[in-house]
Design a binder for these strands. Sequence first.
DNA 1: TTCCATTGTAACTATTGATTTTACAACGAA
DNA 2: TTCGTTGTAAAATCAATAGTTACAATGGAA
Lengths: 147, 147
Amino acid sequence: MQISGRFTIAIHIFACIATFEDDYKITSDFLSSSINVNPVVIRKLLQQLKAAGLIEVKRGSGGASIAKPPEEITLFDVYTAVECVGSGELFHFHENPNTDCPVGRNIHSVLDEKLLRIQTAMENEMKSITIADVISDTKRYISENNK
Amino acid sequence: MQISGRFTIAIHIFACIATFEDDYKITSDFLSSSINVNPVVIRKLLQQLKAAGLIEVKRGSGGASIAKPPEEITLFDVYTAVECVGSGELFHFHENPNTDCPVGRNIHSVLDEKLLRIQTAMENEMKSITIADVISDTKRYISENNK
DNA sequence: TTCCATTGTAACTATTGATTTTACAACGAA
DNA sequence: TTCGTTGTAAAATCAATAGTTACAATGGAA
């Protein structure tokens, strides 16, 4: 199973805002045409990012902007804002191991710590990459490929 | 989205075999009653683990066993054997960024390397944990909780 | 004040993938 | 030959994502 496309879409949103905010009003329609997903999907995502304090959205007049310095927004922030995994658990554990079985009774104790270690390794790497990195790389690529 | 429960089920299978192989024949029914999932699900998983060279299964008479030293089987081996993520990509990328947009045109170049770094961090942690670790912890927990 | 582009949100559909279940042929040991 | 078991296909179910339509609420501009 893969991590939802909402994650890469959300990052794409940040890159678009940073690249175009001086020249365009960043509406959900504008974003939707760069990303090629339905504007309503974008709006829902913007809501989630707003709730996490990462993005500001203007009602009425319209337009989205980044709510705090991009150096202070990590990919982990975006990931948690956007993934609906309520529990925050990366791994799905089979629900009902048989507690009458010595292995079934202890499998959670054995695995939980190991799974958490794996999840933490991933999350730490996410925390080491910021939206500022994404933005500067985006600008670099754009100028390299002239325009 | 979470990583499929097949992963924890597969690890549970190894723990069961190691714990019970001296006293019981490890059939899909036996495993299914410890894990509490349908025996057919177990059999399909056993097939995947067999294809990866991690498990041996006897037809006819029945019974599963571990195909090589548990120290040589990492959680990453189990993960790749069992996850159907064909491409091996942890992150789902939105399919059709608009190539007429400078950001849409470059977003893959910008992100692919970063996403891979995150995925690799997770996989490396998986490689650092072996089935032997799981087995010894399982036995320790069982003896601590007396039986 | 009215107009209008836009947001926020609900509701519905479609699609995809995981999971469960039923069923049965093939196998191998007793 | 019998019996417990595996290997596998097919169908049914269920959950999550994604796409779509629709529309009230907003706020700036005419």
